[in-house]
């Protein structure tokens, strides 16, 4: 579904992605973990070209990601994205947030879009909040609304860029539950996260990044129980002791 080859990116002098290759199969859940500054968020944002790479290419569902313009917008419509800071549109109701893109991008009728939006909001457990403004919701509810907004485009793949990092601890679970449900339903997902429990439970494959490179990858059980590299052992020792 996603094939990324030889991705290289520099922020000025800083080489944030070094020759990263990543393949994600249809229905696969890939969880990307690693220390801060390892380039995992940047990798995620490069997959739908919110960040551009200086070298390398991304192919989504057999189509090379176009560089700009309407073609790129069309590609992005098929790739859902959930951000750390939710980024719900502040000036419109939760329902309108979910309805906007299906109507404006897909050309769906307002009635149909509203019907499926309400179903989606119900599915992520915030049906009762549909007519509120984002700021009236808790962080966990906002993030679930953001997931519903992305799902409304019936994307081929969903990217999650640290979806629980901005949440109060007691709200992390409700968001992870929605994501686990999605994974179980067969959604293709790339998830950048610090939630090791989620990685172990929901991932088909864990990708470990450090210093802009993919250092190690494998099935969650293998990765967490017997990491092959020193970097991964070191990282796991730090995050799993608590």
């Amino acid at each position: 579904m996603i094939r990324a080859r030889g991705l290289n990116k520099w922020f000025g002098e800083h080489h944030v992605l070094r020759d990263v290759d990543l393949d994600v199969a249809r229905g696969e859940v890939v969880v990307v973990v690693g220390p801060s500054g390892s380039g995992k968020s940047t990798l995620c944002r490069c997959l739908n070209r919110l960040e551009t790479v200086q070298r390398g290419e991304v192919v989504i569902d057999g189509v090379p990601a176009p560089l700009e313009g309407r073609e790129l917008a069309k590609l992005r419509a098929d790739v859902g994205m959930v951000f750390q800071s939710f980024n719900l549109f502040q000036h419109m109701s939760v329902l309108d947030n979910v309805v906007l893109a299906p109507v404006k991008v897909r050309g769906a009728s307002r009635t149909d879009a509203e019907k499926s939006a309400r179903e989606l909001l119900e599915r992520v457990g915030i049906g009762a909040q549909a007519d509120k403004l984002p700021a009236q919701l808790s962080g966990g509810q906002q993030q679930r609304a953001a997931i519903a907004r992305a799902l409304a485009m019936t994307p081929k793949v969903m990217l999650f860029d640290e979806p629980t990092s901005a949440l109060d601890p007691e709200m992390v679970g409700e968001v992870l539950d929605v994501m686990t449900g999605l994974a179980a339903d067969g959604m293709t997902m790339v998830v950048v996260t610090h939630e090791m429990g989620f990685a172990r439970k929901a991932a088909d494959r864990v990708v470990f990044m450090a210093d802009g490179q993919i250092v190690e990858q494998g099935a969650p059980a293998a990765f967490f129980d017997s990491p092959q590299t020193d970097r991964a052992r070191d990282f796991l020792a730090k995050v799993l002791t608590h």
Binding site: R76, F83, A101, A150, M153
Partner: peptide, 9 residues
């Protein structure tokens, strides 16, 4: 970014 990610021009 959220708007672009949804496919809006």
């Amino acid at each position: 970014e959220a708007a672009r990610a949804l496919g809006l021009t």
